[in-house]
Design a binder for these strands. Structure first.
Lengths: 95, 95
DNA sequence: ATTGACTTGTCAAATTTTGTCTAATATAAA
DNA sequence: TTTATATTAGACAAAATTTGACAAGTCAAT
């Protein structure tokens, strides 16, 4: 589940229109549409508003948002899992 | 071990000067210096030349290079490992 | 004090990302 | 079928980021 699909699902569960979310996030519906379809990225500042709006955990939403970007970076490559494993090791050793 | 430190180590093992590597990669030493210290990113196209030059495995070098960028994306965050775990799950489920 | 290796800071050019607008498509109600 | 509303697509310039190049800097050895 991508970040975009995720918030689309939340939006539909709450029976809201793109227009309404977009207004709260201060963007037009075209932009939100693109975010929902993963054509554009939401900004970090949007996460708190979205979490509040959907009454969902902000940290979890943020994790999904960032994991999405990690995936985008590696998923077109040969062995994405291997790359992530190396990254994880590096992170763990840096503490 | 970051990508920059890695190639610096390779360079020193091979007793080469920045000047020599830089010339092969067609950049100036200032740029290579920055790459070694992680202030700038090497370009993808540089990996093959570096691998050949140091007679090391290109795919492995590439993995280190990309893992570096993954780390940069997540390491300043609250729970980098958690984010990577979510990313890994997403990757695995997308196959 | 000169030389050679490396680093630092600055800057504009190049590239990428972003937001907005307009038009297109889709869906549903009248 | 018209009308209205929701969503998506495409094009575009503004804004932001990245890049490469240069000049000047440090440092160590001679």
């Amino acid at each position: 589940m991508n970040f975009g699909e995720h918030i689309k699902q939340l939006r539909e569960q709450n029976q809201l229109l793109q227009r309404q979310i977009a207004s709260i996030l201060e963007m037009d519906t075209a932009m939100l549409s693109k975010i929902e379809r993963g054509e554009r990225k939401a900004k970090r500042e949007h996460i708190p508003s979205l979490a509040k709006l959907f009454q969902t955990n902000e940290k979890e939403l943020f994790t999904i948002w960032l994991a999405d970007q990690v995936c985008e970076l590696v998923q077109k490559e040969d062995n994405p899992s291997e790359i992530l494993k190396v990254a994880e090791l590096k992170i763990k050793n840096s503490n």
